[in-house]
Nucleic acid binder design. Structure first.
Lengths: 343, 343
DNA sequence: CTGAAAGCGCTTACAG
DNA sequence: CTGAAAGCGCTTACAG
């Protein structure tokens, strides 16, 4: 492996000058820079990240923490973030909590983060108080996407979950539905995404605005995924007197609902309307009506907000961005929602 | 930030002993180890990865390269690999090629890998000759999953794509279909996953085994995703005299086919049967028949095969595993395939 | 089983 | 604009 002094020797300069030239620092003459670049090129030199990090105090890495990379929203966010980080020359350290408590402790207890990254991005990861203070102790810049828990001084990018849920509920009300069920994530799940709490709030608010009283019998909690949607819907059907419409807290739950309804012999949308939130890549295939949210844009924007201060010279200090940045959502009507049938 | 000498001072030993005790080396007395661990705990000490890497020559990181993390197979593989690596104490450096040529060059030209990782995992990433030799020059252990291009001395985990395709085609033949179309990935796409070449080969072989001649008019190439499946199917229908069955090279393409058929007013499976390969998380929801492949198992097994030699002391040398490890697939019949209708 | 010392390969004041 | 030298925080022979 060629080292910096090999390049220095070939270019006829000191290692300090090589270091400066390669990093594009302004205090190098054009001619010297040219010679250094040529020498580095000729020797196929690549800087040793470990040495550079140790000497320079920057790791060039960003930790990205997601609950489950296999779910639509997180996959899309990570893809967008990865693109942005790579363009900016940062490595992406992926942490997929995956419901494993041990993993959660390693990451959020910061053992896995300590001295390893320059910044942290938390996607839909609610935190205990102890975790918030452990993260704060690291003293690193960070950002959250779609977070229930705010980390002091970290900005947040998200959608307005209450508004999205209200729009979905309103769409069903506009179609004449009155028995509108809601299925959402399990609040007892330690690793639960908290957006569903806001979504339930929006659902209830919109019902009340229409003069209806939310019926606890039509509100079921389960896992925030396909299987959870299936189980929640089965539970709903077991209770008798099924709803004419179901608002699922995310598209994957809505897809599970579709399965359960089909298996129960109910037709969508003739017997039951279904709507979700996300605009999952497969929602079109399934004809699922939904509230579309811009997942890639949230990832890109959050990555940019995280990195811009790092480049700016100050180490990401400052209590900028106190209010969350809210990205817009929009109703997408497909074939899973229709006017309620006359009884 | 506390450093190793803070711990050494508190424990009353040298930094060398702290280093050994913390890494669990056997040459430390039980009593000393206890004192060191207590001191480290008390001071909340975490080793500096940069310093450790520079001094020790190990990075504790593994690069994982995938074409697109948002596709089902890659998401599931990465999730399984991440779990395994984290348990083993390795960081996962994610590289999502995402169809960006610049990114491909950075990663596979090894600029992004050089001196950064202890090992490399390539998932479904075919390589140019120059890339193979650039990777070989790094001298790192590596492994491929589902790779078309073999890297000399790197083992490979995969399914038997030819056999999977034959099974899918046979299922359609058994149902009486004779006009069986195939839709698969675009070979002109530089970043294309090459498994589809084997899948086409299996499709053709099975047709021939049944005494049929593969009809080029029933064989369409497109993107290896939902949208590609839609476009390929539209093209197929434009050609007139539609097939009675479609074998898609992956479930996401099959899902695209489902959309195109529905939009064309054709019913599945009454008018056209559809089968894919994968057993995507949503295949059940869509009632899609498929050849299930064990994605998480491939990831786990590959991670294990990659890391075991690293732990074993030798640096992953040796030309073990010359033959690819093949994991089994199985036919899953749902509702998208049915006997051909009498004409 | 333990320690003193060299060294890993860079970057950064400091001086000129 | 450039260089000599210290230092980043560990690990690893080497010696005992």
């Amino acid at each position: 492996m060629t080292r910096i002094d090999d390049v220095a020797r070939l270019a006829g300069v000191s290692t300090a000058t090589v270091s400066r030239a390669l990093r594009g620092l302004p205090t190098v003459s054009a001619d010297t820079r040219r010679r250094v670049l040529a020498a580095a090129e000729q020797l196929q030199y690549a800087v040793s990240p470990s040495a550079s990090r140790l000497a320079g105090g920057r790791t060039g890495s960003v930790a990205v923490v997601v609950p489950r990379i296999t779910r639509w929203f997180f996959g899309v966010v990570v893809e967008a973030v990865e693109e942005f980080l790579n363009e900016a020359g940062y490595d992406l350290l992926l942490h997929n909590l995956g419901g494993r408590e041990r993993n959660r402790q390693r990451v959020l207890g910061t053992t896995a983060l300590h001295k390893r990254v320059d910044a942290i991005m938390l996607v839909a990861t609610p935190l205990h108080d102890a975790e918030v203070s452990a993260l704060a102790t690291l003293g690193l810049p960070g950002i959250t996407i779609s977070s229930g828990t705010a980390v002091p001084s970290w900005p947040c990018v998200r959608i307005d979950d209450v508004a999205a849920a209200r729009t979905a509920t309103r769409h069903l009300l506009d179609l004449g539905h009155r028995r509108i069920a809601h299925i959402s994530g399990d609040p007892d799940d330690e690793l639960a995404f908290t957006a569903h709490l806001d979504r339930r709030r929006g659902y209830q608010a919109e019902l009340r605005a229409a003069g209806l009283r939310p019926d606890p019998g039509l509100d079921v909690e389960s896992g925030f995924d396909i299987d959870g949607g299936t189980r929640a819907t089965e539970e709903l059907l077991r209770r008798g007197d099924p709803p004419t419409a179901i608002f699922a807290a995310c598209d994957e739950m809505a897809m599970g609902a579709l399965t359960a309804l089909r298996d129960a012999g109910l037709r969508v949308p003739q017997d039951v309307s279904v709507i979700g939130i996300d605009n999952h890549a497969l929602s079109g295939v399934l004809g699922l009506s939904t509230i579309a949210q811009p997942a890639a844009e949230q990832g890109r924007l959050a990555a940019k907000m995280l990195l811009d201060p790092l480049a700016g010279g100050n180490g990401g200090t400052g209590s900028q961005h106190s209010a969350p940045v809210i990205l817009p959502t929009r109703l997408v009507v497909r074939h899973s929602t229709a006017p309620v049938r006359a009884h």
